[in-house]
């Protein structure tokens, strides 16, 4: 079975142009017998600040890590920042993009794409002859 591949920066195969500057969320992708599962770390992100689109087997994740409305005080250490994130993957053509499900829990996005019926493993009955 074909694997998902990252769409390189600058490629024209995109649903929309990526932002000028962006973070790349760490992502796990795995496949079970029935579905493709994409898990991405999006700490601090709320569902209304996130968009997931699928078009012509290109999956795009975009949105923004929010900035605190007002800095609580003087910054002593800054290891993560607010800003836009973006990631695009080319999906194998074998998933039912009509039935895609996406959920966001504690800053982790999980997208489930069911395999089209044609591709699910089928047990073949063997008859004695």
């Amino acid at each position: 079975m074909a694997k998902t591949s990252e769409i390189p920066v600058g490629a024209s195969r995109r649903n929309e142009e990526p932002p000028e500057s962006y973070f790349v969320p760490a992502t796990d992708i795995y496949e079970t017998e029935g579905e493709l599962v994409i898990v991405a770390d999006l700490p601090g992100v709320k569902p209304d600040a996130l968009s997931v689109t699928v078009q012509d087997n290109v999956l795009e994740i975009r949105g923004a890590h929010p900035a605190p409305q007002k800095a609580p005080g003087e910054a002593l250490l800054q290891e993560f920042a607010a800003g836009e994130f973006y990631r695009a993957f080319q999906l194998p053509a074998d998933y039912d993009t009509e039935k895609v499900q996406a959920g966001l829990k504690q800053g982790v996005l999980t997208i489930r794409l069911p395999k089209s019926e044609r591709l699910k493993p089928r047990r073949i009955e063997v008859k004695a002859e």
Binding site: G10, P18, Y22, L76, Q78, A81, G83
Partner: peptide, 12 residues
């Protein structure tokens, strides 16, 4: 060209 950001330098 898109700039991919990985980390943030500390203040100071």
């Amino acid at each position: 060209m898109a700039l991919i950001r990985g980390w943030v330098p500390a203040p100071g």
